[in-house]
Design a protein around this nucleic acid. Structure first.
Lengths: 146, 146
DNA sequence: TACAAATTACTCGTATACAATGTAAATAGA
DNA sequence: TCTATTTACATTGTATACGAGTAATTTGTA
């Protein structure tokens, strides 16, 4: 099988293109693609535990620890003790990041529109449907799918 | 926009699922997804330069150096001087990896079939078409697309 | 209640990714 | 020919990813 027709290769390269595109739209905010995605999520659902945040954003617990460390160092999130469960921590935005979140959301909307502007409306829906199907199809096969 | 509908997020998670699936099919060969892909490519096109290999596999020169270092340490590839251009190196398989490549190719074919077994034949073609379109659509926007 | 099992977050080691920089070699132009 | 630019590869530093393992805590159960 030609590498170019391998689905794993194709997914990896499409993802590379997407991440690169989204990252380049963030350079002036000094955020990485993942960091912006986490802040965006926290803008909708603040004070979640690390566990829940990981589940929603599809980030491994080990990965998430690092992402949160860097966001905390930048003063963009706060870790707080969970009131009921002393094992857990609650993640919250800071005053700084709270004003930043709306801009991130604008960018994300724009970037989504622009990135797919070469596709017809129908194709965009098809792509989303198929990507969802791919993930759903492997659920359980290797686990870990959020 | 809900994170779950964000195309960058969806591409990242579909890719995660794919890489995980393909990696798990390789554990007994002691290869990573990327390493197997590189060996598979070398099985079809031996003695390519590092530059060409990078272009074909979509690997950054910095990334490729590391991948090749590890493959060389494992005795699976050899770096040789290019006969005409002393800046360039030629990458070749070793006796060890030459016997391994057919097995990798079998695995890759199997994994491709199985990974997409939940999709109809038509959907599989659609997915490939759309992933190609996504990459082609951003060609030039951020460069680097192979 | 005592204690094993499960859970939460973290740490460590390894492997991609990629921007930026360095270095040697090749090539283009004056 | 001699210099300027380009090219090929490597190196460095930072940021995901993920498997494996750990400490603290909670839960389930005998």
């Amino acid at each position: 099988m030609n590498v170019k027709d391998c689905i794993f290769f194709m997914l990896a390269k499409a993802n590379q293109a997407g991440t690169r595109y989204w990252s380049h739209r963030l350079t002036d905010l000094n955020l990485t693609a993942v960091q912006a995605m986490v802040l965006n999520f926290l803008g909708q659902q603040e004070m979640v535990t690390s566990k829940e945040l990981g589940e929603r954003t599809g980030l491994d617990s080990a990965t998430l620890t690092g992402v949160l460390d860097r966001l905390e160092t930048s003063g963009l999130i706060e870790r707080q003790r969970h009131p009921k469960d002393r094992r857990a921590i609650c993640i919250g935005l800071t005053p700084n990041s709270r004003t930043m979140v709306p801009r991130i959301q604008e960018r994300l909307d724009e970037a989504n529109r622009d990135f797919l502007s070469g596709l017809s409306h129908k194709d965009r829906n098809e792509l989303r449907r198929l990507l969802r199907a791919v993930r759903a199809g492997t659920k359980g096969a290797t686990d870990r799918v959020i």
